[in-house]
Amino acid sequence: MKLLRLKDRVLPGLPLTLGFTVLYLSLIVLIPLMALAIRSAGLSASEWWLTVTNARVLAAYKLSLLTSLFAAIVNLVFGLLLAWVLVRYRFPGKRIVDGLIDLPFALPTAVAGIALTTIYAPNGWVGSLLEPLGIKAAYSPLGITIALIFIGIPFVVRTVQPVLQDMESDMEEAAVLLGSYRWRIFRKIILPELIPPLLTGFALAFARGIGEYGSVVFISGNMPMKTEITPLLIITKLEQYEYNQAAAIAVGLLLISFLLLLLINVLQRWSNRRQSPIRKGG
């Protein structure tokens, strides 16, 4: 307990609360995660590499990354649009629409999964409209992407919304006085301010998509090499009692997630630095 600076301790309860926090964190999160690290350390580096570069595993990684990336790009555009409309315009039912944005957070993924599958299946409400056009939505990478768009949309809206809300209008005022048009003002003044939260929301949606299971597994079709996402492949390996392979694939997936998390942290630090002088000025 030498780490604790004793002079700050006016209030009681540090040893108890910190002790409990560290103990509980270790038991529930750190030790189990360590089990994954140790299990995959049981494989030699070449065995690990062989597992994660297996054609079926690579196909799963590629599918997870590409569908998540594409869904995150769609969410980038529509998330910005939704945040913009919610902050700047008035329309009836706005409060309900604002609340609905959080639905993908609150709705259990299995419910979202079966609902989306039913809608986009060839005989579903939307799927039956797409089929004559030759578009197969459910049981294809497109279906996976649709599920990931559903899961990811709140991330972009909820990171962009507060920044848009707090934006001062004096720069816009000045631009108007100088004779700029709306589109130019948006591109030159508003959009640069929104880039950090947009990228953060994008990365959050992307990261969530890579690990997502429940909403995707019903609509994906689960064909090895074609529509098998990485989390499903991990479950398949577990069911075949291939624990080492499951652990190796999971470590690969975790590494991708942590890289994205790191990116999010860097972006947030960058956006804090960018915004602080303006905030102070306002």
Binding site: G211, T230, L238
Partner: peptide
Amino acid sequence: VSPVISGL
């Protein structure tokens, strides 16, 4: 962490 890994 992916939910599947949380179970794994």
